[in-house]
Simulated assay, not measured.
Amino acid sequence: MARFVVVLPLSPLTVGDEFTVAQWPLHVTLVEPFDTRLDAEALGAALGDVATAAGVRPISAGVGEDAMFGPRRDILVSLVRDGGEIAALRTRALAALAELGVEPVRTRFEFRPHVTAKRHGRVHRGERLELGEFVLVRLRPPETSHHGRIQGSWPLGEGSRRAEVERGSTG
């Protein structure tokens, strides 16, 4: 089994990029971590179609108030405000994964788009975010001690087919 997550990064990422938990690039999580026997190529085919479907465009959003998340309410996040595009994209991504037989077990029913504050950076109320990339991340890949590796990357946008997917990455 392999573990993946789907995110909208705040700055461009490249397939093959790796990072530890402390170095996670700032992002909005679109689909929570999920386990599957499928490889990145199979997931990428379905998710790439979501990112480039008719009507999908880069998302302009604003940073709202701060909140505390996590079981102990000790994780600082900044809520992200948009016109519903993030939730719609999430619904499409979850549907595409369901068609492949992938059902994330920890899907949040009350989805609240946010950016988690990290030691290396954070966003602040009133800032504008341009979310233009849809990224598949493999968590804890077996070949490395790093905690994340970019496996697929697609620009958001109708008809956009420039995509990268790491080939030969098994689940």
Rank of each mutant, 00 (worst) to 15 (best):
M1A: 14
A2C: 08
A2W: 03
F4E: 07
V5L: 08
V6G: 00
V7L: 12
L8E: 05
L10W: 03
L10I: 11
T14Q: 15
G16V: 08
D17S: 12
D17W: 01
E18A: 08
F19N: 01
A22D: 12
A22N: 09
H27I: 02
V28Y: 15
L30R: 03
L30A: 01
V31S: 01
V31K: 01
P33Y: 11
T36L: 00
T36P: 05
R37C: 10
L38E: 02
D39Q: 03
E41M: 06
A42W: 07
L43C: 02
G44T: 01
A46F: 05
L47P: 02
G48L: 04
D49L: 11
V50E: 03
A51Y: 09
A51F: 08
T52M: 13
T52L: 13
A53D: 13
V56C: 11
R57D: 11
P58W: 00
G62H: 13
V63Q: 06
V63C: 09
D66F: 12
D66I: 04
F69T: 04
R72T: 08
R73A: 14
R73C: 08
R73D: 10
L76K: 13
V77F: 14
V80M: 05
R81Y: 15
R81S: 11
R81W: 15
G84T: 11
G84Y: 10
I86V: 15
I86Y: 01
L94C: 06
A96N: 04
L97T: 07
L97R: 02
A98C: 05
E99I: 03
G101D: 07
V102W: 03
E103S: 10
T107W: 02
T107K: 06
T107C: 06
F109G: 10
E110A: 15
F111W: 01
F111E: 09
V115K: 00
T116H: 06
R119V: 07
H120Y: 05
H124W: 14
E127I: 06
R128C: 09
R128P: 08
L129K: 00
E130F: 15
E130Q: 14
E133A: 08
E133G: 05
V137T: 01
V137P: 01
R138S: 11
P141L: 09
H146K: 15
H147S: 12
R149E: 13
I150R: 00
I150S: 00
S153Y: 01
S153L: 02
S153F: 02
W154K: 00
L156P: 07
G157S: 02
E158A: 14
E158L: 07
E158G: 11
R161D: 06
R161A: 11
R162A: 14
A163T: 10
A163L: 09
E164V: 09
V165I: 08
R167H: 14
G168H: 04
G171P: 09
